[in-house]
């Protein structure tokens, strides 16, 4: 029923799951180089999938007030500001004498909020305030929302060029999906399109999938108890329609289609960007020889994955499962052996 091959390495997931005549594997290619951070995808997803509101909070670190993928946010637009001119553009801020409206101090305070956060579910805070401060520390930082007037702080007038990185994150619909492997109820299943979907009428909220996902995607909904995540609009796919987020994206940053086609298109795009002088462009999750057998939703990034909150080299935990069972078997034998020895050892005792 389960062979070692279906736990790791390149496979086509739908036929591997037992579908005969499965349609081609469908997925997303999210090209962050054209994302404008409008969050239309976040909104469209909520509208179509009736995802509950995730509350209102100011995270104080950037224009991103969603914070992370959660049970109530199945698309999340990350926002990063970096001091770096883009390509051959003329300096964007030449001649403007304004100071930062955000500050390290602000980002630091906001990354480890006191008390209960206003978002639902509450976003996990940062364990240390340092990184948020460091990200916001540069004099160029425009991070919003600011509570200081531009120019008021001592670093007024020091701004230089910058770039904004925006990236619409989503469930990766892994080829080897740890969430699906570990689900004890069969609630998570592989669709004929090769995507990974939770059945809300089956899930009993055991939470296993949440600890298993190497990307921190799937999440428990407070008050409801069940696990929720992107379905890649399974209902729309079955109707031959484009997922809501891809449909809503005004710049085609989110592209939907057969995974093979998307991979080719992504390859061309990254080559084009390299030729145009954006050497930092790279694909993430496109490689079927990576630790999860490739992602059904993959990305073109302009910096290291971890800058966007993505793990740099995720490996599906179930790759090691045969070994784990072996070790448990040995431990069980040792335990039984100890018990036998203890009682047989010296009968007189």
């Amino acid at each position: 029923m389960v062979s070692a091959e279906s736990l790791f390495g390149p496979i086509d997931p739908a036929p591997d799951a037992g579908y005969v005549d499965a349609p081609p594997r469908m997925g997303f290619f999210t090209d962050t180089s054209v994302c404008i951070g409008c969050k239309a995808c976040e909104v469209a997803c909520k509208e179509w999938n009736l995802v509950p509101d995730h509350g209102l909070d100011l995270l104080g670190m950037s224009y991103d007030n969603t914070g992370a993928l959660t049970a109530n946010s199945w698309r999340h637009v990350a926002f990063i500001e970096q001091p770096r001119p883009l390509g051959a553009e003329s300096p964007a801020l030449a001649g403007t004498a304004t100071g930062p409206s955000g500050s390290a101090h602000l980002a630091e305070r906001a990354s480890t909020p006191p008390g209960v956060p206003n978002t639902d579910p509450g976003l996990p805070p940062a364990p240390h305030p340092g990184p948020a401060a460091a990200m916001a520390a540069s004099p160029e930082f425009l991070g919003m929302p600011g509570t200081d007037l531009p120019g008021r702080q001592e670093r007024a007038g020091q701004r230089t060029d910058l770039r904004w990185l925006m990236m619409s994150d989503v469930c990766k619909h892994c080829t080897h999906a740890a969430c699906l492997d570990v689900c004890p109820t069969g609630s998570l299943f592989r669709t004929e399109f090769g995507t990974v979907v939770v059945q809300e009428d089956i899930c009993n909220g055991c939470g296993y999938c949440i600890s298993a996902c190497p990307y921190g995607v799937i999440d428990q909904r407070k008050g409801d108890g069940r696990a929720w995540k992107c379905t890649l609009c399974y209902d729309r796919l079955r109707d031959n329609r484009v997922p809501a987020c891809a449909q809503a994206c005004p710049t085609e940053s989110i592209q939907y289609g057969p995974l093979d086609e998307l991979r080719e298109r992504a390859q061309r795009r990254v080559e084009r960007l390299h030729a145009d002088g954006v050497p930092e462009a790279r694909l993430y999750g496109h490689d079927e020889n990576d630790g999860v057998g490739g992602d059904g939703a993959f990305f073109l990034l302009l910096d290291e994955p971890e800058v966007y909150g993505l793990p740099p080299d995720p490996i599906v935990t179930t790759r090691d499962l045969p070994d784990m069972w072996r070790r448990a078997g040995l431990a069980a034998l040792a335990m039984a052996g100890a018990a036998v020895a203890a009682f047989v050892g010296r009968r007189s005792a």
């Binding site: 990063i80 940062a126 948020a132 949440i210 600890s211 921190g216 971890e306 793990p311």
Partner: peptide, 16 residues
């Protein structure tokens, strides 16, 4: 040394 997204966790901590 490492980068992160504003120091926030990548994984979801166990809900157990």
């Amino acid at each position: 040394e490492f980068s992160s997204y504003y120091g926030r966790p990548i994984l979801k901590p166990p809900v157990w």
